[in-house]
Design a protein around this nucleic acid. Structure first.
Lengths: 193, 193
DNA sequence: CTCTTAAGCGGACCGCTGGTCCGTATCGTA
DNA sequence: TACGATACGGACCAGCGGTCCGCTTAAGAG
């Protein structure tokens, strides 16, 4: 195995870049206001270091996003009820969607940056396939569900970063109100009552 | 009123630009592949003419989009059943969503170009407010509907251009399959049966 | 501690984009 | 035909993501 352990300064710089990027995206109104040069300067490294470590702009944002998402992913893949795999579908589906919503609320800047990253449709990203596959599988455990595929897409669309961001920031809908609305919508999709 | 009638060549050029842009967006894989210079060249005008006539890139795409959307808008605002204002909500809502879906399928390139136009969130566009307001009003005519606002957002999210494009092009879902899936989803949201 | 080597660094540089500017050509009118 | 207003067009500009390569520095061997 040609696994080489990376140099210490490289590791340090990587952390430094991720931290700086997170800070900048959180601060600035629009992700487009944050340039690669800005991030490099804020992290105290050269621009070349950014591109060597993360391939390109999308790669950097994705790395940052995935690092923040990891706990949620873990909780879903092997955590306790109601999020983990042990929960019954009717309980787990609303929990999944609520988790996505909360994550996007808490990491609005990152999510908007990732989903709006130029022409890279969010649907081509690996993490979307994971979300969609997970949700679809749980949906299809419900009796009588034949089109879990489309339903999963539609439900995930309801929590897209720019919509969440618009409702929370522009229209000043509170976090609890949003969660309640989404829960109600989910309940209706899952079959009334 | 200081209404001035525009010069004949200006009108001709405007048409020429819209036609060229439509052609180019339809041809190229990604909207980003179509530059302003490309459009100007294809229309046989200078770049300055583009920006004088349409303000900026977003303005051009929006003008093109609106011009194609106008018939649909008309059919909804004052057309016959089931799309027009005379139809009962339970019949009109699925018809509205089907109309949006078909429009986005038929004008995929334009819709994707408009919704993905850099940082300009689709939710800040005037036409979105119109769609949302229309759908919400009809939803709230249904008895017992209290959160028509969020539901309208969520339903419209299910027919976002990039999702439709992804399902139709990348995943090769047929037009009729998509329409059926959306109809089923809509029915579930509207209360089972 | 020193020497050696290759991994890592950084910022000048590049190509390309959206957008501006203004001298020139054209339209519409009297 | 003459003349003012309007529109044209392409050279031009600033700023972006991304590349490149001479220099620096970490880290294992002796």
């Amino acid at each position: 195995m040609p696994e080489r352990k990376p140099r210490a300064d490289a590791v340090r710089n990587r952390e430094s870049v991720l931290a700086a990027a997170d800070r900048l995206f959180a601060t600035c109104a629009s992700p487009e206001d944050v340039t690669m040069a800005d991030i490099a300067a804020a992290a105290g490294v050269g621009k070349g270091t950014l591109f060597r470590g993360f391939e390109d702009r999308t790669g950097l944002i994705r790395a940052l996003y995935e690092s923040r998402l990891e706990p949620v992913r873990h909780a879903i893949a092997e955590g306790p009820r109601p999020l983990g795999p042990g929960a019954p579908p009717a309980e787990r589906i609303p929990a999944l969607l609520d988790a996505v919503l909360c994550f996007k609320l808490d990491h609005r800047h990152l999510s908007v940056a990732l989903e709006g990253t130029g022409s890279d449709s969010p649907y081509r990203a690996a993490h979307y396939d994971w979300w969609h596959g997970t949700l679809r599988d749980v949906l299809e455990q419900l009796p009588g569900f034949t089109d879990g595929d489309f339903t999963a897409h539609a439900l995930l669309a309801a929590v897209r970063a720019d919509l969440v961001d618009h409702l929370a920031d522009r229209r000043h809908v509170s976090r609890e109100r949003l969660r309640a609305d989404l829960a109600a919508f989910t309940a209706r999709v899952l079959g009334g009552s």
